[in-house]
Design a protein around this nucleic acid. Structure first.
Lengths: 233, 233
DNA sequence: TACTGACCGATACACTGTATCGGTCGATGC
DNA sequence: GCATCGACCGATACAGTGTATCGGTCAGTA
């Protein structure tokens, strides 16, 4: 039913507002916008409303492409998985590459640390990553493949989360490592001064401190060594 | 300045409403209530308002005890750390116990998987856990302690996250493993039928499937084996 | 007895994800 | 060419969130 009030002549009737050409939309565009927001201001800056605003679109329009926010997050993670393509000649190189590239992706998209491992990854890019890994692990016994990949994934997820969490905490107290020690140091100093954690205090104070890179690689070496021992058995 | 309107006699003036005795409050009570909510309905069921309601208190009252929601979450995690006290005779038993008890805690409090590794753990119970671990690792070279514990922690965090995520996904499709295969199975079947993931398809279809317990333990064994090789070097 | 400072919680604000639904437009059938 | 239909867009609405503000009430103190 046309709704032009017939009693109103054209001259009085205002033109319909200059409708902006509806922005062409698709999942990729939506996900890119969301990732941009997350890269800039963290995951909590990603809201359907903000994403829609960036795209010049009403919030509800997004629901034609995604079922809800959770799906958007899943799509974001899957999109990043497209960047993760481990390479290497033997299984050890492949697994190391898998770990390092994942970590690197998390450095470029810190919000990944919040999402990794949080939901099963079954998107096309995640599966493609899995395919690449498994294919490159041709020499490994079939029954060993899943446990090995799963273990490396688990280590990487946890290590990256810890690392990013620490980095954020540092940043929150003022960017420098100087100030970090100036704010957390005193807290730990005071706490250790109570004498309730003698062994811990000794280790923290006396042991060599490793930077994030070394810490990640040492743990990874532990794991790969252990895998090697069982794989070639 | 007393606000009793002097023109109004007692007989007309209503009694002040029977103020409920202000509920005695402290952090422990708040944290317990929050954990109860999270155990029952997941982390997203924890809101300051609901916690306050459970305690029979106005929401803003909580801010006398915590600075914001993040702090509440930190306190929840720290409270659970009180349950984690690894035991064992040699370093390997201690680390295995650390991993298993952490995993068990995450089974009792699934929301822990969402929080683990998300922020540095510096609360008293987390430190006490650290102290217990380090103390039990007396035989290990001082410079090796941190890398080793950090690696095990990283693995556990990631493995537990993955495991809980999968469990939730199963539950979301209907409780049974039967229905899980009936819903995810077809999706993977269809996807593999495209032929885009041949190696992955082979492994998923042909390799032996491990349950969650075995998967966790195998990965942990990999890691501990690797640690053993480097520690006694 | 008067006062003062702590503190409680009602109210308010800006924001979230999402259900609903009237209105508009393009495509389709006659 | 016209009428009709169905898809879809987005304004509006709703329930819920974390938290800032602030007036009113009370207990303790001078």
């Amino acid at each position: 039913m046309r709704c032009i009030v017939s009693g109103m002549l054209v001259w009085e009737r205002p033109e319909p507002p200059n409708r902006p050409v509806p922005a062409p939309l698709n999942r990729e565009r939506i996900v890119r916008a969301a990732i941009q927001l997350a890269d800039a201001d963290g995951l909590e800056a990603v809201s359907l409303r903000k994403v829609a605003t960036v795209l010049g679109v009403g919030p509800m329009r997004l629901y034609n492409y995604i079922a809800g926010k959770e799906e958007l997050l899943d799509l974001m993670v899957d999109a990043v998985h497209a960047e993760i393509r481990p390479v290497g000649d033997d299984w050890r190189e492949v697994l190391r590459s898998l770990a390092e590239t994942t970590r690197q992706a998390a450095h470029e998209h810190e919000w990944l640390a919040d999402l990794l491992g949080g939901r099963p990854q079954l998107g096309p890019h995640a599966l493609a990553r899995g395919e690449a890994v498994v294919a490159a692990l041709g020499g490994v016994e079939v029954d060993d493949v899943m446990p090995v990949v799963t273990a490396v994934d688990a280590y990487v997820i946890g290590a990256v989360r810890r690392e990013i969490a620490e980095r954020r905490a540092e940043r929150a107290t003022g960017m420098d490592e100087k100030r970090w020690q100036a704010s957390l140091g005193p807290y730990l100093e005071r706490t250790f001064a109570t004498g309730r954690f003698p062994a811990l205090a000794t280790v923290v104070r006396d042991a060599a401190h490793l930077d994030a890179d070394h810490t990640f690689r040492i743990g990874l070496d532990f794991l790969l060594d252990g895998i090697e021992a069982r794989i070639s058995r």
